[in-house]
Design a protein around this nucleic acid. Sequence first.
RNA 1: GCCGCUGUAGCUCAGCGGUAGAGCGCACCCUUGGUAAGGGUGAGGUCGCGGGUUCAAGUCCCGCCAGCGGCUCCA
Length: 689
Amino acid sequence: MPRITLPDGSVKEFDHAVSARDVAESIGARLAQAAVGAKVDGELCDLSTVLDHDCALSIVTEKTREGQADPDALYLLRHSTAHVMAEAIQRIVPAAQLVYGPPLENGFYYDIAFPEDRPLKEGDFEAIEAEMAKIVREDRPFTRYELSADEGMAKLREEGSKYKIDNAERALQAAEGEARLSWYATGQPGKDWEDLCRGPHVPSTGRIGAFKVMSLASSYWHGDEHSDRLTRVYGTAFFSKKDLEAYLHQLEEARKRDHRVLGKQLRLFHIDESVGQGLILWTPAGSVVRKELQRFIAAELEKQGYTEVFTPHIGKLDLYRTSGHFPYYQDSQFPPIIEREQMELLKAEGCSCAELSNRMTSGELDGFMLKPMNCPHHVKIFASQQHSYRDLPVRLAEFGTVYRWEQSGELNGMTRVRGFTQDDAHLFCMPEQIGPELQGCLSLVKIIFKTLGMSEYRVRVGLRDPDSDKYIGDPANWDKAEQACRDAARSLGVDFSEEPGEAAFYGPKIDFVVKDVIGREWQLGTVQVDYNLPERFDLSYIGPDNRPHRPVMIHRAPFGSMERFCGVLIEHFAGAFPLWLAPEQIRVLPISEKSLDYARQIREMLAAAGLRVTIDESNERVQAKIKHGSAMKVPYLLVVGPRDAENGTVSVRAFGIEKDLGAMPADQFARAAAEEYQSRGKSTVKSLF
RNA sequence: GCCGCUGUAGCUCAGCGGUAGAGCGCACCCUUGGUAAGGGUGAGGUCGCGGGUUCAAGUCCCGCCAGCGGCUCCA
């Protein structure tokens, strides 16, 4: 006799087992109509789920009480649409083998193995969507049935899909107690299409209001690149066509603030095929942004007692043998550079590329490597003299440019590149100094995010994966370092997640991760503890006991890389930089040629105040000049005409405020703008209006 | 690296076997205009690169390069 507790606390009692749908109907016909699923004791399940014991039940409908789209409802919907898509695809390509089709935050995908002679192409989407529309129109119920483990496995073996057999084995392994396997037929079991599936689903295909097959990708079975290659078909679904359209529109809008689009439009950077993939050419405008950021952080470093160093872009292979970068990370580095004389000798010898590679790997042959990290150079600076414990911490900072061979498919605008400049520094300290030093590093990152108004970030403490052998160094030191990172993160006062497997190969780290407009995550600032390099390079300082001790290193880059950070920053501001970062801070718009002389006076005055200012000398009307100035997202546009010339004023327009703010004495504007610039936006010209 | 899509003027894109196009931008001329596009004229292209099919190839086929979306990777 189930007693069912509803979300409002009321209890319904039945004298027989009932389905969630029955309960919904007992509450009201409209609720039953709107229901797409249920939550029993917090677990999402089918509306047809039978309740034979006391439980807490809530009915899942398209929208929450507040009228928002219900994430649980969308989850059900998308999972169900994945089935409908899979059925449609199998109608078109009967030999396609299904693998795995889960819902996602914004849609769903289905991994499918297609026969070699019939790969899926985007050209198939129309036909797939047409078939899906038919299935939806038929409004067939999602019908669940279960088999015992033995029966189920027998059925799957008979059908012969290794993927489904694997799925079932995994499901049985994960299950506790007596495990059963479940199928969902889209219609009647035995008659209609079905799929091994844990569920749950919406009641019937007719609930799928709007859907779209989005894109194709290749994926790997179990995410393992040595395993089968599958085709991943992405799609999305909503309850209404309107919601789908709103989502597609949102994607388009995001595209407009994509740093690659804005970078071109605002001429911030350029990537040139003939220079090479993943290599950023900073144009004059983008260089201003970068330089301002560097100036900003350099001032903070000075406050924190850093000293600046400069090191070259290459180093001897042997250096990287000692550091552990070569040959272990050979695949992700540019190939070594070999000396000319040796090259000639090897040529005369008839040495093959393979031999050359072997000799370099073995250490028989030396050469140079483009540096993948700055630390070995900095370590050598530290080691170049003796240090007393009184000197520590030594903090060596450099905007160091490094090169890494990223896979071509990984490259992405400014956010994933092959050459980038880290705002790098290495801190050499005594073990007991780690805590405060880590906190100093974290405070830098906090200052950056606060000054730039970036609040949407998450903090990740990257720990080693106990099952992996890629980490080097003493486990006891790892434990200490991991604990130091946890403690520092905790002192930060924000939420953080601990993620095994996210550590660097030489030590654990604290990362600051942000999302781009597409929703992809990028690691920006990072702070890493390292017991390993001091060991490898046999670093020491003389302690109070007059004996040598091993220092600990901290690697840290609060921006991460200037490239990635600027890429993310462009998107954060949608290209509309605050005054202090804006490449062009002020544009003077003379009303006609007659006011050109006055415009030039204004420019001189502002330039003398240290501001970046231009004049629009084009033969256009002000309307057009405003349009163009706004398109380039210039923070302040100053309209000047005869009236202003007479009164010594400028007429101010601020970006984002679509109106004339009014006239202001030119010298007052210059002072206020300079103040806005110097204070990095703490006071603004706008506030004077 | 893998799968799919894309590559035509500085930018955004149309053209998809038969004489290379549009809008913006650029140059010049007219206009001298007070708050989101005044008017005209003109310059500008090995249609990503290399092969092939064809009487004829941006257009069809093959290979490469690059970009995009994912997967894998990410010191």
